Amino acid sequence: MACQFEIYFSAAQYPAGTEWASAALDLVEQLEEQLSVYRPQSQLSEINRSAGRRAVPVEPWLFGLLRQAQTISAQTHGAFDMTTGPLSRAWGFCARSGPDPVDHDGADQASAVRPAPRDRTRPGRRVPGAAQLSSALARVGSERLQLDEQTDSIRFLTPGMEINVHGIGKGYALDRCAALLRSAGMQDFLMHGGQSSVVAAGSHPALPGRGWAVGIRHPLCPDRRLAELLLRDRALGTSGSGTQFFRHRGAEYGHLIDPRTGYPAKGVYSVTVLARTAAEADALATALYVLGPEGARQHCATHPHRAMLMVGPGPQEGAVTLHQHGLTANDWRQLADPTAE
């Protein structure tokens, strides 16, 4: 998952909390061994090697994750898809990125949005030709996956397909860790993966009954917080292309690719989603980024347990526009003028 995971809790409230937190972090490493496509021995790598030829049995927890990813793909009309590997390769976005920088003020706040856009042009990133893009698109689509619930197995219905759970895996790991901590009797904690995925249970000791405060950075001014969200027994996921993109002939192309068109999504700086589980929030943050303001609003309107805060370009240079749906006055507050200084 290529990022740092951290857990916050009150040691006074949970004397054995450190032991359980260590167990949770050990679980993250175990899940990395299973989910990483960069480890040849992982179960995901085995699926990608073999599922084009035969049905591959899958560990039950992982099968549940694949089923959840396929369901979210259908709910978002393909805006989220775990089979976009051929498209990422066509655009040159397959090189593994390093961990996100961690920048916490303390246990009561966690930054959930990456820093302002920087030019991350790297060798190998390119605009693919029409034939290459068409070939990649022919191998993309969760509807081309056969998931058999009777045998907990997966098979690719189209040759050359591959799956990657990078858009939902961190959230899944957080959900598994949260279940472990809750089983130990811990009801008040916050855990994040790379700052962009957060799960919060109960409340911070300084905010009894209110939850945990999570800050949203201004996408154009990373030293300023644009908004603050309060999470209580809820999860958060954020997606954006601020640190993974390249420029070509004056145009900017980000790493979040629309699986339906094969081109990088545009017109949004970041999307933060609040949902019941971290896996759900993770996947939806990518999907709503791809769908854009109106599509995201329509999705949230038909799924009332999901909420979002989208940050897009403002009416003039240096400004941003906030789009929110499903958030109440108790869920969030704006901290900064949306115009960058």
Rank of each mutant, 00 (worst) to 15 (best):
D148L: 10
D152W: 15
E143H: 15
A136S: 07
A110T: 11
S97K: 12
R120W: 11
P159W: 04
I154K: 13
D103W: 10
P99W: 00
A112S: 10
R122I: 01
P117G: 06
D100K: 14
V127F: 05
Q150W: 04
A136Q: 06
A130T: 03
L157Q: 05
A130P: 02
H104V: 11
S97G: 13
R126H: 07
L133N: 05
E149C: 12
G98W: 10
I154S: 09
Q132M: 12
G160Q: 03
V140L: 10
D148N: 13
R120I: 00
L133Y: 04
H104P: 04
Q146V: 12
L145T: 02
G141M: 03
M161E: 01
D119V: 03
E143V: 04
V127N: 00
A138M: 03
R125Q: 15
G124C: 06
E149H: 14
Q109T: 09
A131H: 07
V113T: 15
S97I: 12
R144K: 14
E162K: 13
S111N: 13
G160C: 01
G129R: 04
L137I: 00
P99T: 03
F156M: 05
S135P: 03
T121H: 09
P101G: 08
I163A: 00
G106F: 01
V127M: 02
S142A: 14
S153E: 01
F156Y: 06
P159R: 06
R118W: 12
L145H: 08
Q146A: 15
G160D: 01
E149L: 12
A116L: 08
T151W: 13
E143Q: 14
D103F: 06
P128D: 01
P115D: 02
A131E: 07
T121K: 12
T158D: 10
D105Y: 14
Q109A: 13
V113A: 15
Q132C: 09
D105L: 13
L133D: 00
L133S: 04
G129Y: 04
S134V: 06
A110D: 00
P117N: 08
Q150D: 09
